[in-house]
Amino acid sequence: MLEARLVQGSMLRKVVDAVKDLVSDANIDVSSSGFSLQAMDTSHVSLIAMHLRADAFEHFRCDRPMSMGMSLANLAKVLKCAGSDDIVTLKANDDGDTVTFMFESPKEDRVSDFELKLMDIDSEHLGIPDTDYCATVTMPAGEYARICKDLSSIGDTVVISATKDGVKFTTSGDVGTANVTVRQNTTADKKEDQTIIDLKEPVALTFALRYLTSFAKATPLATHVTLSMTRELPVMVEYAIQDMGHLRFYLAPKIED
């Protein structure tokens, strides 16, 4: 039996809205540690890894680990029916082929439930080792989203280079070229305006902008985004889900052949 009650149900909707265009179907794995989701996009160039800890839920019961295969588009449709302040409760039987979502308004004067059919999805799981990245950039999520949007109008490939001065995003295309440099800023009055760069050694990597732009759909989740880079490794783009967990995106670099 699975029963999980999330007071801030809107977080679930923000997570699904952030990933549903990248991955269409995915297995949500539930265990005593919480909810996890790992899936690659169809081109196997990018990957999402989400974790919501069990202690994020007001009530969490998971008698035995289970994997719930879902269409993320259908899940998004169901979550769209929840009020932004609703409490969301998920229920599923161990051998069930459906999962039920219950939405309760804060004043408990409106309760609705939606039953979603589960699917059999055979997903390939990648082992992602903990990496001691050469460069870690924490910047305002809105700033990252704006850079992706602006540069996408100029080119489709971006070189991200992190040095001690800051992190530079460079692109070029038929229109011309563009550079955006974001400098370390640890003195901004508001914490959410700060940019923090932890550099072990300079690194520059090349990526397809359309994936980085897609990751920015997670902007409503958090005030900051963290980019972690190491030579010749995928970049990790991470949004914290408040203090409940994280939504991570990995993107394989483009390397001179």
Binding site: G127, A208, A252
Partner: peptide
């Protein structure tokens, strides 16, 4: 022009 890699070149299936 740089070639797009795939994740399996960096991470192993488990």
């Amino acid at each position: 022009t740089p070639m797009q890699n795939h994740l399996e070149e960096f991470y192993s299936l488990c």
